[in-house]
Design a protein around this nucleic acid. Sequence first.
DNA 1: CCAGAAAATGAACAGTGTTCAAGAACTATT
DNA 2: AATAGTTCTTGAACACTGTTCATTTTCTGG
Lengths: 200, 200
Amino acid sequence: MTAKREAKREDLRTRLIDAAEARIKHTGLLNLRARDVTTDAGCALGGLYTAFSDLDALVVDVNTQTLKRLDAIMSGAVANEPDPGRQMKILGATYLGFARDNPRLWRALFEHVLPEGRVLPDWHVAAQAALLTHIIKPLRNLQPDFDEQTLIIRARTLFAAVHGIVSISLENRFTGIPNETLDDELDRFIGLLLAGLRHF
Amino acid sequence: MTAKREAKREDLRTRLIDAAEARIKHTGLLNLRARDVTTDAGCALGGLYTAFSDLDALVVDVNTQTLKRLDAIMSGAVANEPDPGRQMKILGATYLGFARDNPRLWRALFEHVLPEGRVLPDWHVAAQAALLTHIIKPLRNLQPDFDEQTLIIRARTLFAAVHGIVSISLENRFTGIPNETLDDELDRFIGLLLAGLRHF
DNA sequence: CCAGAAAATGAACAGTGTTCAAGAACTATT
DNA sequence: AATAGTTCTTGAACACTGTTCATTTTCTGG
């Protein structure tokens, strides 16, 4: 039976992912160190490279986990809301809430850049794309005449806009601007988009 | 006369900034190396630390220069456009154009994160804020009843939204979505915002 | 129980940014 | 012009990275 090997390997992988996640959560992606992670995970330094090709690959796995958690939260948030406009607003508020509650893990999603030439694995791209489906659903109700491809593009644009607002605000760019009213600001902005969609 | 000292120091600073800018332009912030920069600038490795406190401080100076160049381009772009709505669209298109023409320098603006606890110098924040004034001007025409503080907040929100769209697209997140029509998509999006502003 | 395969180990390596004692260059004064 | 003191410049050395790989340990099928 080769099952024991398989199990140990998988156990090591999850231990490393969990350790890296905890480190990122507490001290940020910038301060993630291979030695810290392996110590926390209870393996030797080289062990990381038997379970992952790279420290980058480990971070991608952490980020995928974060995306999946975010996905679950967003699913739950709109589960009982029939109105597509309100769904949009809820999704935006949920995204902001997640970013605020998990600032470093959320930042790691966008802060982490692979060395030039390398691409994100398919399943990570799939986890990103899954987020868009939450937006596509209400958008389809609001714009029934859009074909599927248009819906995807528009959904990405809407997500990007909301993400930009959350991002610029939470990263405190343009200091001097108060941040307390960000929830209202985002809600109003999505309202603006919905008004635009109605009258465009 | 202590002027010669002053001049040499300033000369070294600009040589280092230019060298760092060229390096970032060609190989990206991620591949910026203190040794490369000092070699290109024609000084010893340690010289960097007589002119700047840090490699990070040097990058901030490069980024400030980039912001100023962007500022000048945006100023020119709307100089002869009276209609505020069209100004908005031009500003968006100009921002997208700058990001596309200077991908690595533009990315460096947001990719560069200071070590935790350090803050951006005032004059860099000022260069960021200057960008918002371009948006504030047409927005004031479109929404004459907004007070100054509201204008600033709304301008930042609009900038952040556009930045998010440009950012997510150019960084090729959510692959599988075509990028050719980004100009149209952004133009349409700003049109949507303007429609929303009219009917909100 | 044992040989062969696989995985875990951590010392060694090839870079990083940063420092700092020694030397060179400049300044102000005589 | 000469000089002493101040300031800047230098690059070897340092501390800390991610990554590799010969060695040791662990597991597998017979």
